[in-house]
């Protein structure tokens, strides 16, 4: 099989012949679409910030916590004043929203640094881990799922599918702890802490991927099994296509379109910081920062982090939609 002619349509020009002239106002439609998405984003960020503001203040008197257990009432009052916590709630809220609108979340209670800067500093580590894990996930789950789905009544496939089902119930941190025990503690092959060396990313990324693989495998195998019964697959077989060609070039491109949305969701979950895995592996990402800041009631950091994450998730979802629109020729706009 040497034919790699036109891989399922990632690029290319649509048919020009016989097309009517483009409908007027296409640029306008695009601008409207963008504006609508943008207003959704603003609304989302506003809602998330508001929710967060009140939630944080439901959990007790922040001034008492911030001042520490041994603080005198005077010290507590000083803290209250310092962070503007003595003002009426409505005023605090108004101040918070106005500042948030200018991306000003104040300074970290712990370090005194700009909260947003502190959060953005952690972003690359989290993104690195997230992308690595999702990539690893796809490298394993797509071939594995395709194999299971291409012969879903096979014995080996049935067993594999059962293993995947059980694996889906396995929490990611269990795998992480096992990996640390084997590869870091007993074999001493890989670092289990921090992100100083390139190899340090391996264990946390594998742990995260191991958590993602079962679900993606199941979706891919279900989609492949379903697509195998499609009429166009029979057409391809009637034309003499080999099993290999049928699966790789006829079934998978269709089956993966259906799985792309899940990969997008998985990425969105991971960019919001893999909380437990980051803590276990002391990975200096958003997740670890968030856990620490919540424990320390470092409001500015938590608020800046949640704000950032909401925006990131939104952008990831939008990118997934856009990618689907490009990958699926039926959704592609006639240009």
């Amino acid at each position: 099989m040497t034919d790699t002619a036109s891989a399922p349509a990632v690029t290319g020009t649509p048919v020009a012949a016989g097309r009517p002239a483009r409908p007027p106002g296409r640029a306008g439609r695009l601008a409207r679409m963008l504006a609508s998405r943008l207003s959704q984003l603003v609304l989302l960020l506003f809602a998330v910030s508001t929710l967060l503001f009140f939630l944080l203040r439901l959990t007790g008197d922040p001034a008492t916590t911030l001042a520490g257990q041994d603080a005198t009432p005077d010290q507590v009052e000083a803290v209250r004043e310092q962070y503007g916590l003595d003002a009426p709630l409505a005023k605090q809220y108004a101040t918070f929203i106005l500042r948030a609108a200018q991306l000003d979340f104040g300074t970290s209670v712990q370090s005194g640094a700009n909260a947003l800067t502190e959060v953005l500093d952690r972003l690359p580590a989290t993104l690195q881990l997230a992308l690595l894990a999702v990539l690893l996930n796809m490298l394993v789950a797509i071939p594995f799922g395709a194999w299971i789905g291409s012969r879903s009544d096979g014995r080996a496939q049935s067993i594999a599918s059962g293993v995947v089902f059980v694996g889906q119930g396995m929490p990611g941190y269990v795998i992480g702890l096992v990996l640390i025990q084997v590869f870091a503690v007993q074999l001493g092959l890989l670092p289990s802490i921090g992100n100083a060396s390139a190899s340090a990313a391996i264990l946390p990324a594998v742990s995260l991927a191991a958590f993602l693989v079962p679900r993606l495998t199941r979706v891919v195998s279900a989609n492949v099994a379903e697509t195998m019964d499609e009429d166009f697959v029979r057409t391809a077989r009637a034309a003499g296509a080999s099993r290999h060609t049928v699966i790789l070039r006829h079934v998978l491109p269709n089956a993966l379109l259906g799985a792309a949305a899940l990969v997008g969701t998985q990425l969105a979950i991971l960019v919001s910081g893999a909380l437990i895995i980051e803590v276990i592996f002391a990975w200096p990402g958003l997740g670890a920062l968030m856990i620490n800041s919540v424990q320390q009631l470092d409001f500015p950091i938590v608020q800046a982090a949640v704000f950032t994450i909401a925006g990131l998730v939104f952008l990831t979802n939008m990118a997934t939609d856009a990618l689907l629109g490009i990958l699926d020729p039926r959704l592609r706009r006639q240009r």
Binding site: A5, D231, A236, A238, A239, A241, H250, P253, L257, P329
Partner: peptide
């Protein structure tokens, strides 16, 4: 073989030329 339903019988994500070329070279 020519099948009954041309609406579902062709791969929706492949250009028709690509499938024809694949079949010739097979």
């Amino acid at each position: 073989m020519v099948f009954q339903d041309p609406m579902t019988g062709l791969n929706p994500v492949r250009r028709i030329g690509s499938v024809l070329v694949e079949t010739v070279r097979r």
